[in-house]
Amino acid sequence: MNRIFAVAEVVIRELIRRKDFYVLFVLTAAITLLMGSITFFNEDTIARYVKEICLLLIWLATLVITVTTAGRQLPAEKESRTIFPLLAKPISRTEVLLGKFVGCWLAVGFTLIVFYLFFGVISVAREHELPLVNYLQAIWLHWLMLGIVGALALVGSLLLTPAANVSIVILGVLGIWTVGEFLNQLAARTGGLVGWVTYAVYFAIPHLEIFDLRERIIHGWEPVAWGAMGLATLYAAVYMAMLLTLAALLFRRKPLN
């Protein structure tokens, strides 16, 4: 376990020292503040559209950070050959992989906290209220979702070139966000072989839309039931475990030179 966290620590240090996070954060903040400074119809207490834009930017920024960070870990180790002195130490490939995943996930968690703190400030400034439980639930589910995405990017990095991996994972995630939840309805209407295939895809893909509480926090709905939160956590854990097992199997067989 210490070895996994040692590898994770290096990933976190890398993210802290890279400029991606800072650039995306500044852009998110700048666009949100710019949008927030517009007054519509002399009504200066409008809040939800600013919250919506801010959250959309947070979701996109953290998606990009997660996919690029997780997707580059193993290829960059191989390309810069840092994997060689590392594997010459008493650490298995599975531990390296898990360390990379944990590092990405923790780093993204840290990123999420920073982004949501900004969102909280905007929300308080506009609406004069901070529904803490809702926000904590939203951060938790968002983090779980990014865990699945990170694991997906790690698997992809073992099968595809880095550019293809990043593009495919981002497009795949956007696809799941937008149409994933409707595949069952599509399958029911299509029928036949295509319907069965659509159903299979529906049950195979991770349903990332489950982890999206944006509408609830934008429109001030009450918190989600804790039982449902537990189920979502379990659902995410199962997907992360499956994807990481697949990644470990692939990485163990992957020639390094």
């Binding site: 020292r17 994997i83 002195p85």
Partner: peptide
Amino acid sequence: YLPELTYYYRFL
């Protein structure tokens, strides 16, 4: 193990 070329995390 010391590799032929230096392969270390350059940001550390």
